[in-house]
Design a protein around this nucleic acid. Sequence first.
DNA 1: TCAGTTGTTTATAT
DNA 2: AATATAAACAACTG
Length: 258
Amino acid sequence: MPELPDVEDARRFLAAHTVGQRVERVEASAPEIVRNTTVQGLGRSLVGHRFEQPRRHGKWLLAATDGPIVVLHLGMTGSLRWSGPAEEPDAHDRVVFVLERGKLRLHMPRKFGGVWLAAGPESLEEITGPLGTDAAEVTRSELGALLERRRGGLKSALMDQRLLAGVGNLVADEVLWQAGLHPARAARQLDDLEVDGLHAALRRVLEHSVGHGRVPRHDGWLTGVRDLHDPACPRCGTRLEKATVAGRTTWFCPSCQG
DNA sequence: TCAGTTGTTTATAT
DNA sequence: AATATAAACAACTG
């Protein structure tokens, strides 16, 4: 499920379980998940190093050690799990970091996402590509400035990781619905009030979702109805419309987001 | 059997 | 140069 809130949850999980522990061994049942080195190379570089405080930028998880940085992307189905040292990983635990007191397992049924190794902060960008400000941190004026410079639609702008890092399909739809803005509106054509509303909705959705550990399926939110059979707008009751915008399935209210 | 899916990348088109 | 779109990636669900 990973969008920014899920990755932030994974970051906290990593902080709670791994910080201060030394790597003893690295195993992979799906070695192709290790992207810019081999499983052996990962082991050689990491064994003996201790995990430090992990960071997150957009949907990228940066697990620093007192040596290199382990870079993780959870793709569409990834999550982190922790188990005792004796427990055997299950079939979808693609990469396992054996630490002093247990095993950190990258559980990932679909093999999108992966594990990279960065020598230091300077080499992160070659792995992640250029990333904009983290969506949870962006200021009102920053958001306004980048939308002004952007041609094309609003949803595609929000989901462009180079502009704003961390917004995925669910968050984009939720934010646009809460702000009452049509996903295909021209990004540069919002007035000041609309940018205010968009920024407020972005902050609200991300703050609430991060507190929840994922994008919640709440009553009164678009996410609470979008998977139903024939969803209606929680605000006005109008039947929601489904369209493909920015290449993704998009739900919106033709009345509130006209 | 076929379409759909919360992520990114690549190729191609505009 | 930017932006949009479709396909590909892998595995599962309905």
